[in-house]
Each structure stands twice: as structure tokens, then as C-alpha cells.
Design a protein around this nucleic acid. Structure first.
Ligand SMILES: [Mn+2]
Ligand SMILES: [Mn+2]
Ligand SMILES: [Zn+2]
Ligand SMILES: [Zn+2]
Lengths: 138, 138
DNA sequence: TTTCATTTTAGTAATCGTTACAAATACAAA
DNA sequence: TTTGTATTTGTAACGATTACTAAAATGAAA
């Protein structure tokens, strides 16, 4: 179990983002619960700590973080956007039963296609769907 | 240029789907314009041929086709779902400028991860974002 | 052909995630 | 303090999709 060292305010300042109560709470939540949450999940959880927080602030802040490269956005299903604190390239596995989103490492270079040789690739998204190990046991 | 042989009614019957005017029109559109259209794009185009067609029918039919495996749904961007007549596994490249969605072939086996060895993988999605060759020239 | 049950379609309202906007609040420099 | 700017909040609006119901089409039986 790798410990997570957290310097929320430092990270925000490094990205030239003023560390407001709300921004600290949202980034902290993302760092501690590395669970690809939706905006609504973040909102619901933070209402206990910051009762006045609004949905607008959640969206504004997540957009700001994404633009600054602090987080990544995931559009894995049709409906809700998900937010990932891990910005290094990695794949995702979504369990059709428990809906959990797992990370998995991958060597992106292995997926090559000479059909795209004249294309400028900026970003790669890889995700699988299926049944996770835990759900397979039931 | 590989010719496209089309037997819309036959394909529908093979999937046990009754070939109504609307269903034929939608499947025909998808087969001829292999362009990953949105539901709205299909709707707009078909209004000329089948003026009474409704959005509900577009959605119902696309859902039916997807469940029957006649088409695949793509959720590449946050907002609109896209529909793909090509059901064989392949990757997608979305140009950030012209928004065109390109297909590219890939050998999915190359993306392996032993972290998922106990997971049942049902479906894989791979897509890239960037700038296409044409837009790079401008 | 008529009848009748079933399937399919159309139209509209409702839902849900997200965005836009304007007013209120917090912050920081002068 | 005063003043300007950044941030937050709350609400309205938006857009894609879904839910629902009535109407129309279909197809089999009588
Ligand atoms: Mn992740
Ligand atoms: Mn495709
Ligand atoms: Zn599971
Ligand atoms: Zn392009």
C-alpha cells in the first residue's frame, strides 16, 4: 500500500489556482477517494463539510482543474462525466454489474496504426467493459 | 473502393426485426453514410424521405438495432451518442478541429494487461483525439 | 373481408446532466 | 477603509434522452 502524500494547497498554487475552501475540498476529495467520481457524487459528499457548496462550483472547479491538467475527464458512459485524479495514461475497466471503474496500466505504444501516421494524436482513451473478478465469484 | 452490397430487409429479417419503412430507412442511412451519425443527424436527413418520422422512432430503432447487434453505440464525447454500422472491433480517431470521426484497424490482442487476468472482458473501446491529416495541412 | 389482438409509430411531457447568467460574497491590493 | 477583481452561489435555460400514451399499421384468425 503506497502512502499518499498530500499537499493540496501546494498543488493548487503550483497550477496558479487560488486555494479557496471549495477548491481545496474538491481536490482533497479526489486525491483521497481515487474513485472516478461524478460531479454529483463529489457534491453530495462535500455538502457535509462545506454545506453551502453549490453544484455550479463543483462544475466550475472541475473544469478549471481539467484545463490546468490537475485531473482528467472520463466520458465512459453516455450520461455522466467522471473525473480522474490520476493523469498518467492508463486504461479503465468498467464492471457491468457493480459499476466499479478499475484502473489498469498499459503500454500505449503497443497500439499502433499506420493508418494514422499522418495524424497528430494528442490523447488516447482505452476502456473495457465486462465483469470484474469479485462479481464473477458471486 | 470496396462496393457495399446492401440487403436491408434481409438483414433486418435475419435479426428478427420487422422491416418497417422507418427501420429500413434508418438502417439504409447507416449503411450508406458510414459516418458515425448522431440520432439528430439521422432524424434530420430522414425527414426528407419519411416526413412523418419522429425522434422517438429514431431512438427506439437505434436501441433495437444496438441490442440486436446490428450496430454499435459510441460514446466518444460527453454529450451525444453516436451510432456505428461497423460492428467489427476497430478504433476511432476524432479530429478536434473538423470533428470527423475516423476508423482505424487495430489488433486488440496487443493491448494486454495481466492486472485484468481474472476479469471477464466483454467489450473494448479505443479512441484517440487529435488533429487529422487534412486539418494539419491548413 | 371483417374482426381483433399485437406491434410499431408519433407526439408530447418529463428527466437529467450540464451550462449560462447575474447577483452576492470573499479576497487582496492600494 | 476603499475599490477592483476573483470566486461562489442560486436559479434559469439548454440539450440529449427517456417515459408515456394515443394513434396507426400490421397480421392472423374468423
Ligand atoms: Mn483512472
Ligand atoms: Mn467506426
Ligand atoms: Zn463488479
Ligand atoms: Zn480534421
Amino acid at each position: 500500500m503506497k502512502p499518499i502524500y498530500i499537499d493540496i494547497i501546494g498543488d493548487l498554487k503550483k497550477s496558479n489556482i487560488r486555494p479557496s475552501i471549495q477548491r481545496i475540498a474538491i481536490l482533497k476529495y479526489l486525491k483521497i477517494n481515487q474513485s472516478h467520481p461524478t460531479a454529483d457524487q463529489i457534491y453530495t459528499h462535500l455538502q457535509q463539510q462545506v454545506p453551502t457548496i453549490s453544484k455550479s462550483t463543483i462544475y466550475n472547479t472541475l473544469d478549471l482543474f481539467a484545463e490546468s491538467g490537475l485531473i482528467r475527464t472520463l466520458s465512459l458512459e453516455g450520461n455522466e462525466m467522471r473525473y480522474d485524479i490520476i493523469t498518467e495514461p492508463h486504461g479503465h475497466f468498467i464492471c457491468d454489474q457493480c459499476r466499479t471503474i478499475f484502473n489498469f496500466s498499459l503500454t500505449l505504444d503497443s497500439i499502433k496504426s499506420d493508418e494514422l501516421k499522418d495524424f497528430k494524436i494528442i490523447d488516447k482513451t482505452i476502456y473495457y467493459k465486462g465483469i470484474c473478478a469479485k462479481c464473477l465469484l458471486v
